[in-house]
Design a protein around this nucleic acid. Sequence first.
DNA 1: CATGAATGAGAGTTCATTCAT
DNA 2: GATGAATGAACTCTCATTCAT
Lengths: 205, 205, 205, 205
Amino acid sequence: MGIAERREAGKKRMQSLILGAAMKLFLEKGFDNVSIRRIAEKIEYSPATIYLYYKDKSDILFALQAMGFEKFYTEQQAILSEKDMWKRLRKHAKVYLSFALKNPEYYDLMFIMRGPVKKMKEKKEWEIGRRSYEFLKKNVKEYMDTGYLKKTNLDVAAFAFWSLTHGIASLVIRDRCIMFPDNHLNAIIEGSLDFVMESIAKKKQ
Amino acid sequence: MGIAERREAGKKRMQSLILGAAMKLFLEKGFDNVSIRRIAEKIEYSPATIYLYYKDKSDILFALQAMGFEKFYTEQQAILSEKDMWKRLRKHAKVYLSFALKNPEYYDLMFIMRGPVKKMKEKKEWEIGRRSYEFLKKNVKEYMDTGYLKKTNLDVAAFAFWSLTHGIASLVIRDRCIMFPDNHLNAIIEGSLDFVMESIAKKKQ
Amino acid sequence: MGIAERREAGKKRMQSLILGAAMKLFLEKGFDNVSIRRIAEKIEYSPATIYLYYKDKSDILFALQAMGFEKFYTEQQAILSEKDMWKRLRKHAKVYLSFALKNPEYYDLMFIMRGPVKKMKEKKEWEIGRRSYEFLKKNVKEYMDTGYLKKTNLDVAAFAFWSLTHGIASLVIRDRCIMFPDNHLNAIIEGSLDFVMESIAKKKQ
Amino acid sequence: MGIAERREAGKKRMQSLILGAAMKLFLEKGFDNVSIRRIAEKIEYSPATIYLYYKDKSDILFALQAMGFEKFYTEQQAILSEKDMWKRLRKHAKVYLSFALKNPEYYDLMFIMRGPVKKMKEKKEWEIGRRSYEFLKKNVKEYMDTGYLKKTNLDVAAFAFWSLTHGIASLVIRDRCIMFPDNHLNAIIEGSLDFVMESIAKKKQ
DNA sequence: CATGAATGAGAGTTCATTCAT
DNA sequence: GATGAATGAACTCTCATTCAT
């Protein structure tokens, strides 16, 4: 490993140290209580050091969001192994929801939080978010083409799919399901997903 | 009107003065830029006065949330005039979405924001939120009973309806629809709503 | 003294406490080392308290500047007791210089410092500075009218007078006279003033 | 060129690279917004590198001041071509003012700024500033000797001349002429200079 | 010769909240 | 009932500077 490489590696290590600490704090204290100072404390560096690796606070949020999208995108590839389009459609929804509920902080950052959106728009049209949407759209198209999904405008169908899964995810994550007993919640979620999926998609005879 | 009553009336008046100012500020400046101080300034009282009427900041948010639910509940009654259950189901969704998009601050407070949730749980079962959900459920039951909605567990169907509409609303409100050109957005929203509604509900022959 | 008056008095007292501390710090530590925090420390209040009395740092500088101009204007009135215009002209210069050298911090703030100038321009065209200049101009006009000063455009003559006195004052205050032995400096200053004054003004025969 | 010499040359080159960048930044961003870091960025070296060539920040300011004096001294030599002492005296004033207004950052550094003064005193008698003053004095002596300037103590006359020109320059540079309309300012400056010069100096008959 | 990495110190500012009056 | 006065605790961010490598 040459000098430049080692340096680069050091930089990467530090950045991920920062991001890791930030993410842990999000979990422990909630978004509003994560400050540069607290992150610095957690990693036992001075606040000024953070600024050597990230330009400002929203840069950190943006980086975390990007990590989230990366992970999200990668995990979604799993659906491609399913060649039966009907099953893939169902799996698609489950994988989406599973990501959201297993990584609620990432999901929040990606699809709910207000903060990082301004940055999103600035940074090259938000490539990373777009990619995930394109992946969704591509698959939706296949569901339609193979006759499992009713034909309509692609964006319309994709948005419908997205809205349903996001609706479920965000109601859960932002704690709006308190009217359901904890031990029923899962069944209701799954049931709802099935209910809609089986309505919009038709298993061929 | 006795002394106690007059006092009570005065208290109510002041409280609604505070809430009104807070809401105006939310609209004008965004949630993050509303402080107790700014509310006090707006109504031309001192910050300390606010604390005579609300225990702390989150109490104000909670009260606003309650106002939002009140408004929401009231507006939803409009669907009852529609006696054709098929049409009512469609109208239900439209009224929901229309409330959300016309009152994004209320909607945010009610269904997205983290802040007031702790209060929600404390305040005995969150009556006000529950009432709205019960209204939804009651109607969903009617849609089913009249055969316009496929039969399934009531909570499941209600949650499905809610997730879809909330998903749309919250993606729009939290600015995640930047991949759609502004002038297409409306059509996509309406299209998606129709797409799903027409799938889960069946117009009788 | 009524309640309102007492309050007003308290406010004034606090403001002058702040300004006094700020001024002392300017003397002791130099302009650059005066921070809101240090002022607060000096008066044994919290930094936040300062903001109850002054909107921001430059507001404090502006207030001090205004005090300086007030003092300056007042002291200049002394020249009016001199009815002999020739003597008054001379006295005018001496009074200007004497103010500058006895109150170098005020003078610096008023005529040298960069900081408060932006505020100056905003605040009602900088009434307070203008008033001093008008006073100078009015007198210069009298010197001319009575024949002690060569006739020329009023602004031109006033600016000439001002430039000379300010030149001396600012070279001294900003420590550019280190080539003159300390014990000669005074004589050189006075001499220079006399030298020019006797040249531009003519004692009538 | 021996090794030591080459090293010395390299050092000089680097120093002037630093000074050049610093001066450009002063021009572009103003004094307060120039930090060691920003200078380092501009020349694409690390901040630490700057410290190999200058002990600290004020050392840089001092060096720039020296450059300013060098330039100032050189430009002033131009007056020597004027053999008519009356004209030279006038030209002297114009050249002074012209330098100040064309190089306000240098002028500020040399004659107004507080920062580099401590250094001045330390660096044994501040040779470079003295030289400029001696040049002024030598010429003032000639103006007197040739009868164009009233006889008086040399320092007195020199300081008078300096005070007037510096007064004008520093009032302009530090933005204290806002009472004059922009389009009149030049005329007032020139007029004032002429007004005094024609008074203290006498064209022989 | 050059620098990456780090930091202590400090800047201005804002906030929710308290409490004696 | 209302508030003036006050504050502790944050906040984000920038700076000059050091030092091992």
